[in-house]
């Protein structure tokens, strides 16, 4: 994976610039070479509100399409905002909280 480049120098970006935007723990995750990273218990406690999410066999759809294929779908719409977005939002909020962040800004298109 290539590093992020500073548009002025076209060299890899100074980590200090990113530290103004993200807490250190998330930057560490961003650059990590670890295969697996543990999910803290506090995050799991919030995930528990809606996880694990269901996987359904779409028998109705299969029949309507008259297909020999088996169709499954993993459904993330059971979360409070109604999509997969809180999987990362909750994690990011947690690491920011641990770092002492008081306010978080974010963008949204669909609103979840």
């Amino acid at each position: 994976m290539k590093p992020l480049l500073d548009p002025k120098t076209l060299e890899p970006v100074d980590p200090k610039m990113l530290e103004a935007i993200f807490p250190r723990e998330l930057l560490a995750q961003e650059m990590s070479m670890e295969r697996f990273i543990q999910i803290p218990e506090e995050i799991r406690d919030v995930y528990r509100l809606w996880r694990p999410t269901p996987m359904y066999r779409a028998l109705g759809l299969e029949r309507a399409l008259k297909t020999p294929a088996r169709i499954y779908y993993k459904y993330e719409g059971v979360s409070p905002p109604g999509s997969h977005k809180p999987n990362t939002a909750v994690a990011q909020a947690y690491y920011n909280m641990k770092a002492g962040t008081e306010k978080l800004t974010t963008e949204t298109g669909a609103g979840q």
Binding site: M1, I21, F22, P23, L26, Q29, E30, M31, S32, K85, T88, A89, Q92, A93, N96, A99, G100, T101, E102, K103, L104, T105, T106, E107, T108
Partner: peptide
């Protein structure tokens, strides 16, 4: 803003 960080909804590795 003071004590404010940013949360991205997609794209980045983390």
């Amino acid at each position: 803003s003071e004590n404010t960080k940013y949360s991205l909804g997609s794209v980045l590795n983390h």
